[in-house]
């Protein structure tokens, strides 16, 4: 349901490979929430992979140019929403280089046939949420006391070049708290999930994930909430503990909180079934 009075604002949208494929439930719930708070997401025409961890790991020039192609596709006058924290860092780092290195700017203009847009704002989902705030006539009991461990992963840890960018520490607690959920205090909100090592070195990642999961359990959480689809996947596939908490994408819980149309298919995609918890807390019918 979109708000009646507010005019919809158009925003360019870069979903990234994870949200477009393995985390469709993240993508769909995020779009629902954005529509509800007054943003119309327009997919960036013909976007390509940001280069992911692999490009900057072994070929930083390639990583830069892959990110630049996406920036060159962004229409003027609209901010660019990047759903994935990792894609967001890649695109922001490329933009930072374009803004600070004149040779990089020249090469970009020559290659993509358009000037660097000095006003292009790359924003994260969190920024949109923050701009609207949790306030207004929202049901404060919408999340019915759900106890969650806010898990930001490494999205809060920005490289030094981006150290003056905004940090979103505390936003999940504030937003979900406003709807009646309860954040637990726990030791690992910013602990790295192990990301791509999950493929080649699962035995390194599993202890990391187990530590995170145990931390959430010991703090009394009923679930974890992630800001990143990669973290979400690793929490679901690499946990070796018997007792595993379900993990939600932040956007899924916001969709429940705002009472936008919820699709059960989102939760059916989870590998650790969150339905028993949602039913117990009477958050779904």
């Amino acid at each position: 349901m979109t708000p009646m009075l507010r005019e919809m604002q158009e925003i360019s949208y870069f979903p990234g490979c994870s949200l477009a494929t393995s985390a469709k439930e993240n993508n769909q719930s995020l779009k629902e929430v954005c529509a509800h708070i007054g943003f119309n997401l327009v997919d960036l025409q013909d976007w390509n992979c940001c280069g992911s961890s692999s490009a900057h790991s072994i070929n930083s020039e390639l990583a830069f140019h892959l990110a630049c192609r996406n920036l060159s596709l962004a229409p003027a006058g609209r901010p660019l929403l990047v759903a994935c924290p990792s894609c967001s860092t890649r695109l922001r780092m490329a933009q930072h280089r374009l803004h600070t290195v004149p040779e990089a700017r020249e090469a970009y203009e020559l290659r993509w046939g358009r000037p660097v847009d000095p006003d292009l704002k790359i924003i994260h989902f969190f920024e949109l949420i923050q701009s609207r705030g949790p306030f207004g006539r929202q049901p404060v009991d919408a999340l019915n006391g759900l106890k969650f461990a806010p898990y930001y992963g490494c999205m809060l840890a920005q490289p030094p070049a981006l150290r003056y960018e905004r940090s979103y520490h505390g936003l999940m607690e504030k937003m979900l708290g406003a709807f009646g959920a309860q954040a637990v205090s726990w030791p690992y909100p910013a602990r790295c999930c192990g990301t791509f090592l999950s493929v080649a070195r699962p035995e390194v990642v599993s202890p990391m994930i187990d530590t995170i999961m145990r931390g959430a359990l010991e703090a009394g959480a009923e679930c974890l909430v992630t800001a990143c689809a990669m973290c979400h996947l690793n929490l679901e596939i690499r946990c070796n503990l018997k007792n595993r908490l379900p993990t939600f994408h932040f956007s899924e819980l916001l969709a429940i909180a705002y009472r936008t149309p919820i699709q059960k298919s989102w939760f059916a995609k989870h590998l650790v079934d969150p339905m028993p918890l949602l039913k117990e807390r009477r958050l779904v019918a």
Partner: peptide, 22 residues
């Protein structure tokens, strides 16, 4: 080599499709 091979496969995929095919 496992980590390097993984990176190579990701880049090959981007080269082929412009996106990753997991």
């Amino acid at each position: 080599t496992g980590i390097l091979n993984f990176h190579k496969e990701v880049l090959d995929s981007i080269q082929r499709y412009g996106r990753t095919h997991k």
